[in-house]
């Protein structure tokens, strides 16, 4: 049989590693990206904190981060990762580059999601005498929630892609397995299994994202 030589335990571990990397980096990406995206939106033209200099600086920095290919970012960030996590390898070792690589992307998506909110929500809140934090937390973010969930879903799918790539520098997980066994040792069956697993993972993420978006769209 084709799959006789497959070490299922190893694959199970790889799946767990991937999920850990995904969960950990998604958490931090949202943690940093949501405020950044909101700030980006608020400082943009005609918004509550319109600040041309702040907006263009922030925008410029995020663009720089987004223009570096992820595989290069992984290598560039190795010293920083070692400093932060004590290691530059393994699940813990790839979380910092994953977070940095996707935060800028996610922040842009948040900015877009907020831009989709009807301007009337802001206008009405201002006219009702709401403060800026009140407008952000009670009106803008709740209104943008479906858009933000969609952004998280897209980011999660991108992260699956990136975790696989991080296998190249010894990040572990499904991608690591695919490269070490499927590619370097010509074990096609491992390659097939890893690809199938990635497909299933992405489908699950997208489907649950869609469900949540539908649930929060009123």
């Amino acid at each position: 049989m084709l799959f006789d030589k497959v070490d299922w335990q190893q694959i199970g571990q790889a799946v767990l590693d991937t999920l850990a990397m995904l969960g950990g980096s998604l958490f931090f990406t949202v943690l940093f990206g949501l405020p950044l995206g909101t700030l980006l939106f608020l400082t943009s033209k005609n918004q509550l904190l319109e600040q041309r200099f702040a907006y263009s600086t922030l925008s410029f920095l995020l663009n720089i981060l987004r223009s570096i290919p992820f595989i290069i970012l992984l290598i560039l960030l190795m010293p920083l990762t070692t400093l932060l996590m004590g290691v530059s390898l393994g699940v813990r070792g790839v979380i910092p580059p994953l977070v940095i690589g996707t935060t800028a992307f996610f922040a842009r998506l948040v900015e877009t999601a907020l831009r989709e909110v009807d301007r009337g929500a802001t206008d009405a809140s201002v006219a009702r005498g709401a403060s800026i934090p009140q407008i952000v937390f009670r009106a803008l973010l709740p209104e943008a929630l479906p858009g933000i969930i969609a952004a998280i879903t897209i980011t999660a799918v991108v992260l699956v892609d990136y975790t696989a790539m991080s296998g190249a520098i010894g990040g572990g997980g499904i991608g690591d397995l695919a490269i070490r066994y499927g590619y370097q040792r010509f074990q096609t069956e491992i390659m097939i299994i890893t690809v199938l697993l990635l497909i299933v993972l992405v489908q699950i993420l997208q489907a649950s994202g869609n469900r949540l978006v539908a649930h929060f769209t009123h």
Partner: peptide, 29 residues
């Protein structure tokens, strides 16, 4: 501003909130 009510042409309601929540909004603020 809270003492000056404002009604808009395009209603400007918060779509993520129910009728009840929309009306409670200024009071909560």
């Amino acid at each position: 501003r809270q003492k000056t009510g404002m009604v808009f042409q395009h209603f400007n309601l918060l779509n993520a909130k129910t009728v009840w929540q929309n009306i409670a909004f200024p009071l909560q603020i």
